[in-house]
Design a protein around this nucleic acid. Structure first.
Lengths: 333, 333
DNA sequence: CGCCAGTATTAAAGCGCTTTAAGAGCGCTC
DNA sequence: GAGCGCTCTTAAAGCGCTTTAATACTGGCG
């Protein structure tokens, strides 16, 4: 009544375990008669190979470890796509998540102990040195976060270009006084801020540059709204560091009776599920998760199967998702 | 330069692999001198045990498989807590997620192949019969979903009581015309609807019973708003099937200039991150995920370590989270 | 009919760890 | 100093699978 083993299948089919193993993995060798008998026996017994055993016996595990934060909706999206991409290359995944009580180092250790051949780290927070050290053990690719001067592969979105897209879109719509709600310290926020500044100058709108302090929260968006729209000459459009900030801003505007997008246009960043909520319907910048993941998995596979050794950094262009919070600039009086 | 094995540690420490194994797992036996030497050698070599190998050799895997949907924020919360609870009992987790291209059956198979001793299924959608069949292979506990007439353990929130809490709260605030936006077909929606109806009757408000069709989306909440507040005698409070629906409703009210909670109070269900957004600040019913998880893990552990065989169903009382969308009923003219 | 090149099958040696039963060493007592 | 009960250590047998090298068959050819 215990779980059937390969031995049981082999016996039932009247062959050796070697043949049974070959058949069950679709390896060439066994003739069609053997094949059929084994398959039939396996099906009849309800045989399922034991992963631990085959992992141990196999020379290669064909396992990719994925570090994620289970709380992040963006990571959720990425994981979905990683599954698909990895399977396409014949790899399987081991998921390990960071939680309140389980830090990144712990989560990575679990992956290391699981015979992973490579690691895909979603938004890792470990210092670059630690990542570099890891990379000496096995191929590592960091997704979504720039890792300055490290050997690890990096796949990330061009954050500066993303905000530039937002600005371009607003300029196209006739806006000129375009403000930006900042995201605080951090490499990502810096990139986005820079993108805003450059884009404004490129459009010769340097005079209208206006960066409002902020962080990643809604609250920060709401504060920015008060700061921006309490002034004499408020902007006609606002780009924000992320969707949360944008949502806070939107709400504050709504409460003040300022029409969006009639009076003011708003653009977020991330294309989070929040932005897609019907009643928010936020124009935002998408990181193109499928593309990000395709590159990440490709990077891993090339190292493992293609023998690549040189470092690689892929920067994926972001995509503007136009929804309902942006519209033509009101004609000035 | 390859990864060190137990053998290497043992050799370096001048003992057998048996002793090394014992020491590294903190098992009793080895003397303190041996202990020290092994530990030192392991540290020096940077030894990490191979999970696949120890899993294979160990009689028990002490692994609990968790089925989840990586897209669900509720599941994310649960997984966090499961990690904690499982560790407390000396179990480790294997995560497997449902995605667009990876259905529940596939995800469960992965778990089965990973030597899990028991399964914790978060919101499983498989038919009861399938779950019962699974349960014959290993202990299974379904979380958050009632599984009628099956052998599997169930841990879920008392959905009817949850809505009743919402109604009680509204009645306390002086509301009498309390409507309910339904969640459509499904056992969960049925439970919540029943909770509403019973609570209203208990308060002798049967005459004000008003259930509006709906489903789990915001859109449905917005539609409900139009239906409810287009009538002559609109309710002064609305309870909804879930937070999404409530948010849709809130938005529609806001756009119509109906003040919340001044003119109308709204209660959601789930205490999703959505409800916690500062500008939504929705009064809602929480499923108390830590509690849910504690019971789920306890159920599993009792089966595995405690030898329990009889079926169990735990119903966890929900908790009302009062936020900003509920207030005293306006005094009627 | 003997020999060869296939092809189909299998015995056996691991993969890296755990665990058990047996062994080694040691300080006692009588 | 034999005998005993200790504690500490280890040899060896797996765990369930993969894989390699060797063996057993084919039939075809000279």
């Amino acid at each position: 009544m215990r779980r059937p083993r390969l031995q049981d299948v082999a016996t039932a089919a009247g062959v050796s375990t070697a043949s049974a193993s070959l058949v069950l993995r679709g390896a060439p060798g066994p003739g069609s008669a053997t094949r059929e008998r084994v398959l039939e026996a396996a099906a009849r017994l309800g045989y399922r190979p034991d992963r631990a055993a085959s992992l141990l016996a196999r020379r290669r595990s064909r396992l990719i470890g994925v570090l994620m934060d289970v709380r992040s909706t963006f990571h959720a999206q990425l994981v979905e796509d990683v599954h698909e991409a990895a399977e396409g290359h014949g790899y399987d995944l081991v998921l390990s998540t960071v939680t309140r009580t389980r830090d990144e180092a712990r989560a990575v250790e679990t992956l290391l102990d699981s015979r992973c051949e490579a690691l895909v780290l979603l938004g890792p927070e470990a210092p670059a040195a630690r990542l570099t050290a890891l990379d000496r053990q096995l191929p590592v690719v960091a997704v979504g976060r720039p890792v300055p001067s490290a050997g690890v592969d990096v796949v990330r979105a061009a954050d500066d270009d993303g905000v530039a897209l937002a600005v371009d879109h607003l300029v196209d719509l006739g806006h000129r006084r375009i403000a930006y709600v900042d995201g605080g310290a951090g490499v990502i926020a810096a990139g986005r801020r820079r993108g805003y500044q450059r884009a404004m100058r490129r459009h010769r709108l340097g005079a209208h540059l206006q960066v409002v302090r902020g962080n990643h929260t809604e609250e920060s968006g709401a504060r920015a709204a008060r700061a921006l729209f309490g002034s004499d000459l408020p902007p006609t459009a606002v780009a924000t560091y992320n969707d949360h900030s944008a949502v806070g801003l939107l709400d504050a505007l709504l409460r003040s009776g300022i029409d969006v997008p009639g009076a003011v246009s708003v653009v977020g960043y991330d294309d989070s599920p929040l932005a897609r909520l019907a009643h928010i319907d936020l124009t935002t910048v998408s990181q193109d998760s499928p593309q990000l993941v395709r590159h990440a998995v490709a990077a891993v596979v090339e190292r493992l199967d293609g023998g690549r050794t040189e470092h690689r950094e892929v920067v994926v262009p972001p995509r503007l998702v136009v929804r309902g919070t942006t519209g033509p600039a009101a004609v000035e009086g």
